[in-house]
C-alpha cells in the first residue's frame, strides 16, 4: 500500500532522514518508533505531501506522492502532531469544511461526517466551538478529520501525546478498532503503545532505519538476547560457579533474593551465546548437586531494552564519526 524507497531529506546541511526504505502492506498497522527528532514527523510529512523530499520515492497505492500528489492526498487521512483545528469554528462547521476540501461529493457529505463523528466518538460535542473543547476531544476531532471520507491510509503523528491516561486508553482502543479497514502508520516514542497496537514496528534514529520487525520478533532478534531467569535453592557461590561453567553460558548475574526464602535461594539471570538453549544442561547440573530449581523462565527483552540497545548503538557509531577536532 505504501512504498518508501531510499527517501532522503536534508535541511540545509542538517540531516532530516537518510536513505529510508520500507513498505506497509494493506490493512497493516505500522508503528514508527524513535526518540524525539529522529525523523518520524519528517517522514510522515513527506508521505502526506506536506514536505518535498531531497531524493527517493514514495508511492501510495501505486501513485507517486510527488507526481500524482492530488491522487495520493485523496487516499490519505492525516493527523499531525498538533491537531490542525480552527479554534473559532464549531466541530460541525469544521468537519464540513474539511469534507469540502477533501472533495467529498455533496450527496455523501452528511453520511461521511456522520460516520467519522461516530468513529471518533464526538457526538456530544458536535455543535460546540473547538476552542472550548478539552485536549482529548480536540485530538478526537483531529482524528475525525483524518477519518473523513474513509481514506485507505491513515497517518497519525503521535496520536496520544499530551492526553491523560484515560484518554490515551480510549484513543488506542479507537485506533485498534480501525485495524483491517485502513492501512495505518502511527508514530510514537512510547514503546508499550506501539507493541500494543501495531503489527509491525520500524525504529528510526537520527533519520536512519535501525530495525524493522514485529514487536515480538524485534525483541527476539537482538543477538545474545536469549536470557533465562533461574531461581535455585542452594549455596550462592557454588551455584553461580557451576552455572558459569556450563557450555554455552556467556554470563551470569545474581539478582538479590527478594522473598523470605531469600537466605537459601539464588536468583540468576543467565545469558547465553548465540541463542543456545542451556535449560536442559542447567537442569541436570543442578539436579546432580541436589539443588532444586524452583523457578525457570525465559526473559524476553522488552521493547524498551531493544529500543535503547538499538538507538544507543547507533549514537555510539555517530560519535565515532565526529572528527577529533570538534
Amino acid at each position: 500500500m505504501i512504498e518508501v524507497r531510499n527517501l532522503t531529506k536534508r535541511y540545509g546541511k542538517a540531516r532530516g532522514i537518510e536513505d529510508l526504505t520500507f513498505t506497509v502492506g494493506k490493512g497493516e498497522i505500522l508503528g514508527f518508533l524513535g526518540p524525539n527528532g529522529a525523523g518520524k514527523t519528517t517522514t510522515m510529512r513527506i508521505i502526506t505531501g506536506y514536505l518535498a523530499a531531497t531524493s527517493g520515492t514514495v508511492e501510495v497505492d501505486g501513485f507517486s506522492v510527488f507526481e500524482d500528489a492530488m491522487e495520493t492526498r485523496r487516499k490519505i487521512g492525516y493527523l499531525p502532531e498538533n491537531p490542525p483545528l480552527y479554534r473559532e469554528m464549531t466541530v460541525s462547521s469544521y468537519l464540513r469544511f474539511v469534507s469540502e476540501l477533501k472533495g467529498i461529493p455533496k450527496s455523501k457529505r452528511k453520511d461521511a461526517i456522520g460516520s467519522a463523528v461516530e468513529a471518533a466518538g464526538i457526538e456530544t460535542v458536535y455543535n460546540r466551538v473547538i476552542s472550548n473543547l478539552s485536549r482529548g476531544y480536540r485530538q478526537r476531532v483531529g482524528l475525525a478529520q483524518a477519518l473523513l471520507g474513509d481514506p485507505d491510509v491513515l497517518i497519525l503523528d503521535e496520536p496520544t501525546v499530551g492526553l491523560d491516561p484515560r484518554q490515551i486508553i480510549e484513543i488506542r482502543k479507537l485506533i485498534r478498532s480501525l485495524r483491517g479497514k485502513h492501512t495505518i502508520i502511527l508514530s510514537s516514542h512510547i514503546l508499550p503503545e506501539v507493541s500494543m497496537i501495531c503489527n509491525r514496528v520500524i525504529i528510526i534514529n537520527n533519520g536512519r532505519l535501525v530495525a524493522s520487525d514485529t514487536p515480538i520478533g524485534l525483541s527476539r532478534r537482538i543477538k545474545g538476547s536469549e536470557r533465562i531467569a533461574v531461581r535455585v535453592r542452594g549455596p550462592r557461590g557454588e551455584v553461580v560457579n557451576t552455572v558459569r561453567e556450563l557450555p554455552g553460558v556467556s554470563s551470569v548475574s545474581v539478582e538479590t533474593p527478594d522473598s523470605a526464602a531469600g537466605e537459601r535461594e539464588v536468583l540468576l539471570i543467565v545469558e547465553t551465546e548465540d541463542s543456545q538453549d542451556v535449560r536442559e544442561a542447567l537442569f541436570f547440573a543442578m539436579a546432580s548437586r541436589s539443588w532444586p530449581i524452583v523457578e525457570m523462565k525465559a526473559v524476553d527483552m522488552s521493547l524498551e531494552d531493544v529500543f535503547l540497545k538499538l538507538t544507543t548503538e547507533e549514537s555510539l557509531e555517530d560519535e565515532t564519526e565526529v572528527p577529533p577536532g570538534e
Binding site: 492526498r73 498538533n82 490542525p84 474539511v98 476540501l101 477533501k102
Partner: peptide
C-alpha cells in the same frame, strides 16, 4: 502558526 496549514496543504487542494 496554528499548524492548520498541515491540513490544507495535505488535502487534495492546489
Amino acid at each position: 502558526k496554528l499548524g492548520t496549514d498541515e491540513l490544507i496543504m495535505t488535502a487534495p487542494v492546489s
